[in-house]
């Protein structure tokens, strides 16, 4: 049952569409960066080297490093914001709505008759979580791969004023000194948050047969966290998935331990509600 659900999730049209949309945003950002940031940085180098050695501006140039280009941390363009705004949708696209489709078509009844209710629910949950997580991670990995071939793996010098993460932020030592590890850790974090958003749709599918409501619920949750909870409860960034998800940690003051607790709690609570509510009802 598990293999079948995973195969359905990772070969679905929604999965391919999610990857295409994500990679499309990444490629646009790559082109934008090459033209607007990288080129300008190289022009600044030529211009600086052409100055007299005693000129006030001579000696002040900084090489553009990996994280200055990677979509997760590049904030000069709008693509980071676009990607993280579309993030919940990309996570939902592959397989999260399949639960509703399965019940509508009667396919769920057949699977439950053959494999049992708990096996079906568990397999569905795992497949939805993994497909959601992978669909948001692949574009980030593609962006990282593109920039690894363009920019050196150099830590960012805070003096260059190009850092989007500040010294007091979560994982700042990694950001400034080990950029590749920072990006990989953050892709891992985003994998889990993508999985959480996809599972949220699965949970809403329990209570509503409305495709739009179920499909958009993670986006509504994300927007609420980003624009309301953040303002109403200042200082709660570490418990706010929408503030944790973005590697640029934009305006956020996130503590690593609290963020970890928040992610782990979501990973346990959402499936738990899904399983508990499933026991009480026979079918939608």
């Amino acid at each position: 049952m598990m293999t079948m659900e995973l195969k359905r999730g990772f070969t679905s049209r929604g999965f391919k569409l999610a990857i295409i949309i994500g990679v499309f945003i990444v490629i646009l950002q790559y082109l934008w960066f090459g033209h607007h940031t990288y080129k300008v940085n190289q022009q600044e180098l030529s211009s600086m080297l052409s100055l007299e050695k005693n000129d006030a501006d001579y000696g002040w140039w900084f090489e553009t490093g990996l994280l200055e280009g990677w979509i997760g941390c590049e904030n000069y363009s709008m693509f980071n914001h676009i990607y993280y705004f579309a993030f919940p949708l990309i996570a939902v696209m592959p397989f999260a709505l399949s639960y509703l489709y399965d019940w509508r078509s009667g396919y769920a009844n057949q699977l439950i008759t053959r494999a049992g209710r708990s096996d079906y629910h568990f397999s569905k949950m795992v497949a939805v979580f993994l497909s959601g997580g992978v669909s948001v991670s692949i574009p980030l990995v593609v962006s990282l791969w593109l920039y690894l071939m363009k920019l050196p793996v150099l830590g960012i010098d805070c003096i260059s004023m190009q850092s989007v993460v500040s010294n007091a932020d979560m994982l700042s030592e990694m950001y400034f000194n080990f950029p590749l590890i920072y990006a990989l850790i953050y892709i891992f974090i985003d994998f889990f948050i993508g999985g959480i958003y996809a599972t949220l749709t699965l949970l809403v599918s329990r209570f509503s047969e409305n495709l739009f409501l179920a499909g958009l619920s993670p986006t509504l949750y994300h927007i609420t966290l980003l624009y309301s909870v953040n303002i109403l409860l200042p200082g709660s960034d570490s418990y706010n998935l929408a503030m944790i998800v973005n590697p640029s940690q934009f305006y956020a003051t996130v503590s690593g331990l609290e963020a970890l607790i928040t992610i782990v709690l979501h990973i346990f609570i959402l499936p738990l509600i899904f399983i508990l509510t499933g026991r009480q009802r026979e079918m939608i």
């Binding site: 600086m48 000696g59 140039w61 900084f62 007091a168």
Partner: peptide
């Protein structure tokens, strides 16, 4: 202190912090 983590601020208070005055960055 707002710009530093707790352990870093402790280093400042304990006079263990090293400070670097930067005169230029590239090529030297």
């Amino acid at each position: 202190s707002i710009n530093l983590k707790k352990d870093q601020w402790r280093k400042v208070c304990d006079s263990e912090m090293e400070y670097n005055l930067v005169f230029s960055n590239y090529p030297e």
